[in-house]
Amino acid sequence: MNTPPSKPWILGLTGGIGSGKSAAAHHFAALGVHVVDADHAARWVVEPGRPALAKIAAHFGDGVLQADGQLDRSALRALIFSDPEQRRWLEALLHPLIRDEIANNLAQAQSPYAILVSPLLIESGQYSTTQRILVIDAPQALQVQRTLLRDNTSEQQIQAILKVQASREERLLHADDVLVNDSDLKALQTEVERLHHFYLTLRGGQP
């Protein structure tokens, strides 16, 4: 009788805005690792026709909907970043739905380990579902510079996002591994490959 393959262990991958966590995740995926993105799960649970979107519109009003019925993220973001109580209301609604979506997606993994990418891995408590944590770290000035180049947003909004995200120090306290991404994409990919080969030697995420 064949023994069933062991269940993949879960690596939590996180980093502040503009740290390069998405680029790192893409390279892990290119190496054949099953990657689940918490941001994608968060988008999926508020798609038109899903119950969460109707509840958000009922609570905040139709101003948070676009003409086509999709969620207007920037309108919602403006409301919740200026009001911690509204942000807590939204998190209480969405976090359990996102958690279920992530768990269902991770359960489909066929690779030796799977990755949960989340900007709020530490803050949301999602790290408790992982066996190991990789933090993509970058100096804050570089995070802001990269985000300004990438997104059509203001430095003020980036600073507001940085305030909501865990501090670098807090993230690094939780980290099993740290990848400092202060160079170019090639250097990042080389580090990802090095970590990938190391992770393939682990059982359950621990040496």
Score class of each variant (00 low, 15 high):
S128V: 10
E191D: 13
G125P: 05
S6K: 15
D176P: 11
A141M: 06
E155D: 10
A25S: 12
S19F: 05
H40C: 07
A23V: 01
L195W: 06
R77T: 09
L195G: 05
R146G: 00
R77D: 04
G32A: 06
R203E: 07
D83P: 01
L94V: 03
L162S: 09
F81R: 02
R50Q: 15
P4L: 11
S154F: 04
G205D: 06
Y113D: 12
I122K: 00
G205K: 04
P207F: 10
L148Q: 11
Q66P: 11
P112S: 14
E123M: 07
L185G: 02
E170M: 08
Q189C: 07
P207E: 13
S167D: 12
K7C: 11
N181S: 11
R50T: 14
L90P: 03
P112Q: 12
L106H: 10
D100R: 11
Q206Y: 09
L134Y: 00
H197T: 09
A25H: 00
R73Q: 06
R150M: 07
L116V: 04
I122T: 05
S167G: 14
V164C: 10
L116F: 00
D176E: 10
L134E: 02
G69R: 12
W44F: 08
D68R: 08
A109E: 15
G69N: 12
L53S: 07
I98H: 02
A103Y: 01
I136M: 08
G49T: 03
W9S: 15
T129Y: 08
D39I: 00
R171C: 02
G61R: 06
L97D: 05
T201P: 06
G20T: 03
R99Y: 01
S19C: 07
A25N: 05
S82T: 15
P119L: 03
Q110R: 14
I115F: 02
L162M: 15
N2T: 10
D182M: 10
L185W: 06
D39G: 04
S111E: 14
L31W: 01
